[in-house]
Design a protein around this nucleic acid. Structure first.
Lengths: 208, 208, 208, 208
DNA sequence: GATGAATGAGACTTCATTCAT
DNA sequence: AATGAATGAAGTCTCATTCAT
């Protein structure tokens, strides 16, 4: 029984097939970015004719959004999985750092797409930001858990969640910018330490 | 007196005129991003004919690079100025946070362009990253200064500089993504605190 | 009992069913014209899948021709019926005016299609014109009947038939062009009078 | 001094140049109709690159409208000229019949375009109809003139104007449909006679 | 008989770039 | 130095048609 590439999106066919195809499309887009990637190229990567893309998606942009959405969902899944069996909030934070770093490393094409999208049109920005809030929420929840059980200081959970996100992403991005391999352990150690313990030497701190 | 590419637009134009024009071009590009902004639009914003652009720049891309470069240089200038009369490294960090936040707020169009560019083609990424290293270096220097005089813990200065950058940028970006005003004081306070003092409660920390 | 192309759509469908379907297809085409109407839309209006169209017709064009043909046949039927029990040629002319006007009003979509087709490619034009000659012939016959029994002046029956056709159609079209309702009585009266009696005042006419 | 093909539409260049180009474009469209004529073909006929069309017109449709408009204006000019030195309304009618017939014969491509457009979308219909009202108005005025000076019977000038238009156009179209030459004299004589004197024999008429 | 997913040729449109003035 | 009309390559999208089920 022949399966249509996107059959699962609409009828029959497993969801996994569909996600698989979106992942391939993501790679196609990731190579050169939205604008420099032609629909023909995506179709080629998918092994279907151009018309097939347009049979399933209203426009290049709609396809792109599906791709982004899938990517964001993928990150969320992995973040959730990474902390599923972990006890303390501090440990969870460490796992999340590791997880995001790995994701950025492995799916760097996708990550570039995310971020670029975050810097697009006002409408794109908002849509995209709202989607990313899912993964942000996971960090946010861990922070609140730590605040409740007293393992974390009195910090603004929202802003702090974003700060952590930023630390990880930008640290990782730096290596990718120079096409270097991310020195996982070093980065994890450094981000962990700074985030959890700060940078001030003990004698310079007026710990609250 | 150095002559700018556009010096003739204003008779006797100086380098400052040139920077002024690049700043306007930046705003034009920032509205819709590199690809969706036409040379016609940039020319229109500049009040010159399209041919004039090509008289001064070899291509749209070259113009864009000049714009980006000018933007990055602008940020560097402001960062340098912000810490020029400050004593301690910790104080300098605070000033830098404030400075970057203000820059992101005021020049958000430019910042979006920076970041997008950081996520572009491999070659662009590298060029761009190298340029951004200027402002990173400023943070880096402050950290080393603090390491030397003992006010900072033994942290990896390079990675930590990037982490701080990431905290600030991403925190700020969040608000811009939702077209909200950045709550300056809150963000500054939060980032400062986390970065300098960490998030772990005293009793949970095995301070080194 | 003859089987229609779509007979299977309604089990035991007859020729009448077929005509019914062509009439629906006509409405679909009429809305936006041949080119702007997609086969999908026609299929949708018919409540069948696109493939079904191609099962019954070789191409979009063949379907369209069938539609036009059905429309022209419909007009002929009605014209013939309208004069079937009428005695004098002059009375018949009045009935025909009324009949065409009603047809244009009720089946304006179809009429637009006819006319557009009359203005198409050379080959289409000829095919179409030949088809329309059926209804023209009806008028022509009435005129000849009148010429024979002396109730009509010595006019060129062919050209005059076309003239009458033109008077009616264009008069009616004017209202449709502005999406106004056709003022039946007025138009009938005016066309009748002009056609039968002319426009010149008695004293200005050198009646032959 | 080089002249741009459409220069007159915008600046410099004579209006005649511009009209000339629209006339050529009209011929291009006329051959196969709006939809089957590609912009490339029009550009080719005009001897310019495709982009040049889009430099001067926003879309294929806008170009088409300009073409139609020019054609309608052309007809009006000729109608007005044809009756400029004619005395009586009845003579004017004769001239107008001749003029329209000649126009249809010479510019048949344009005429097909007019009519097709009259049968298009509701919006097109209205726009087009409004434009054609110019030439209709000329006939209308002649009729009113005749009504006032008593040379015409008491007919409805509006509807009658349209009727005459229809007689001429459809009579002429018939020949074009079969790609035959229009027998000018015969048609003129027939239309004139029917329109001015009617078809009923004297003894069958109850002249008012 | 009927379906509808897939196809791919072809059309419109955009826009960076050139060059004569 | 500056202009802006002209260009044409390239990209998005449509849709008539096919064919395996």
């Amino acid at each position: 029984m022949k399966r249509s590439p996107f059959s699962s999106v609409f009828r029959g066919g497993t969801v996994d097939d569909s996600r698989h195809f979106l992942r391939i499309a993501a790679q196609a887009f990731a190579k050169k970015g939205y604008h420099r990637t032609t629909v023909d190229e995506v179709a080629g990567a998918l092994g279907v004719a151009k018309g097939t893309i347009y049979y399933h998606f209203k426009s290049k942009e709609e396809l792109y959004l599906a791709v982004i959405h899938e990517g964001i969902y993928l990150l969320e899944e992995q973040m959730r999985a990474s902390i599923s069996n972990v006890e303390t909030p501090a440990e969870k934070i460490k796992k999340i750092i590791d997880c995001i770093l790995s994701f950025v490393e492995k799916e760097n094409g996708l990550v570039f797409l995310f971020i670029k999208e975050l810097c697009g049109t006002e409408i794109q920005r908002t849509v995209q930001a709202r989607m990313l809030c899912g993964s942000l929420k996971i960090i946010h929840n861990v922070l609140e858990e730590g605040l409740e059980n007293g393992s974390f200081k009195n910090v603004n959970a929202e802003i702090t969640a974003r700060s952590l996100y930023g630390m990880i992403i930008i640290s990782a991005l730096h290596y990718l910018s120079f096409s270097e391999k991310i020195p996982h352990d070093q980065v994890i150690k450094s981000v962990e330490k700074v985030f959890l313990e700060g940078t001030l030497a003990a004698e310079h701190r007026g710990d609250s």
